[in-house]
Nucleic acid binder design. Structure first.
Lengths: 248, 248
DNA sequence: ACCGCGTATTGATCTGGGTCAAAGTACTGC
DNA sequence: GCAGTACTTTGACCCAGATCAATACGCGGT
């Protein structure tokens, strides 16, 4: 378990602030120091809301560990997840004072935050930070567009397979024995969260997961522990051209 | 009609390069001059492909006039539009040499392009450009997330209403007589393009447009000329909380 | 005026995924 | 061990939107 001590030193924060270790390789020590000055950590438990859409937002930050989701809700209660925040992902928009989405901790969550105004000051003085942020935002935009294809054109089964492969790619805890296409991980999302991600109902998610299990595309131990015996098979099910390259 | 002469002077290019007039208000004359040096225009006819996904992309640029679309296609031919590029929108990702999406001119199109390498050089030396680009990218990301809600959770009727209100917001040619919620514009998309945008079939698009017409939400002259007698009514149909503010 | 072709509308029918309902599973706390 | 709660699975039925098919509209070319 994480405790405050383990976070006291920035070394512990491998996934931290816009990857500032990477940034700072190109910067002078002052910038690192100034980032450290305005940095603080926040922890949340699974299910807790980090911030509500419309609230004042006086920080930006990145996910250190755990998973958070960005969701949008219509007045009648329909909700759509519009961002899945994994470790190292950035939260908050420099230049905007109000949260545009609900941010909810999907698992226990640690975030590394920076007070917004000093961060923006620093950013305007440190081109590398703005450039790094631009790269990250462009990556997010690509992810969002990939997701749009999933939402707009894929079947329920393909949607589930797509989500599993995304999580597998970023969350795998084991590549199996030797050179093999096996991937093992724990699902960090409830069926309902998966449904919100994919624009489905939780019943459909459950049914399709059962179907993929029945067909041998995935194996389940309990509700959450997933084994993908053949990653290429999964990618095929997702409707992605399986790239050709080795994904590991 | 636009001709080469009308484009020769950068004044004509009101919607131009990452709004460089705005950037340059904060820059010295050198940067403007260097942007001008690497700038050139390209014209396309409706239906022409600007670039295919996977092609080498040696430029970045922005839309001056006309409309282009970013689309993704699966091997079996299903396609999803993932970006609708209106005048002033930016195309291309600094730092990536290959196009990730098909870019197609939906109407006759003029783009203002910059050769990629010099543009990147300039960008690394001119913080304001990177910052401006970051803002634009964040705006696009917001638009993409809005769109995800549309794709994932809205009904066909709501999807059409959402698309019409987006186009009305950015493309309106007339605000009607005096203070009124009337908006008039020409649809720049075929039914098929609208379907690709919304994750529907063109038949469903056609049916829903007919239904909105029958219910008095919109009026049509020919297939393309649209009148929205009451913009608030349309926003309501789109399932958006009608903001409260005057949209004009 | 007629043809051809791309675009749009409309109808008839089918189906994937939504909705409603009922169990099943796995925890936590007593 | 038992009750309570949150999550998941499974079944039965239904409907919004897809699919297949026919027709209509508009426009440039001869």
């Amino acid at each position: 378990m994480l405790n405050d001590r383990s976070l006291a030193v920035s070394q512990e924060c491998a996934n931290c602030p816009i990857k500032h270790r990477a940034v700072c390789a190109r910067c002078d020590g002052n910038e690192l120091e100034r980032l450290e000055e305005i940095k603080y950590y926040r922890k949340f438990e699974a299910g807790q809301t980090v911030i509500w859409s419309g609230d004042r937002m006086d920080f930006v930050g990145s996910v250190v560990s755990g998973i958070a989701s960005l969701t949008q809700t219509m007045e009648d209660g329909r909700t759509q997840m519009v961002g899945l925040l994994l470790p190292s992902d950035f939260v908050g928009r420099p230049g905007r004072g109000t949260a545009a989405y609900d941010v909810v901790a999907t698992t226990d969550l640690v975030m590394c935050c920076f007070r917004k105004t000093p961060f923006e000051d620093l950013m305007s003085k440190t081109p590398h930070i703005a450039q790094r942020l631009l790269e990250m935002t462009l990556d997010e935009l690509d992810a969002a567009r990939e997701w749009m294809l999933v939402l707009g054109r894929k079947t329920a089964r393909e949607k589930i397979a797509s989500l599993l492969s995304i999580i597998a790619r970023r969350n795998a805890t084991s590549g199996g024995t030797g050179f093999k296409n096996t991937v093992v991980f724990d699902l960090p999302l409830t069926r309902e969260a998966m449904a919100d991600y994919l624009g489905l109902t939780l019943e459909t998610v459950s049914r399709q997961i059962s179907a993929l299990k029945r067909d041998g595309v995935i194996e389940l131990e309990g509700k959450r522990h997933v084994t993908i015996p053949d990653m290429y098979r999964l990618l095929e099910e997702a409707g992605d051209d399986a790239d050709g390259g080795v994904f590991a």
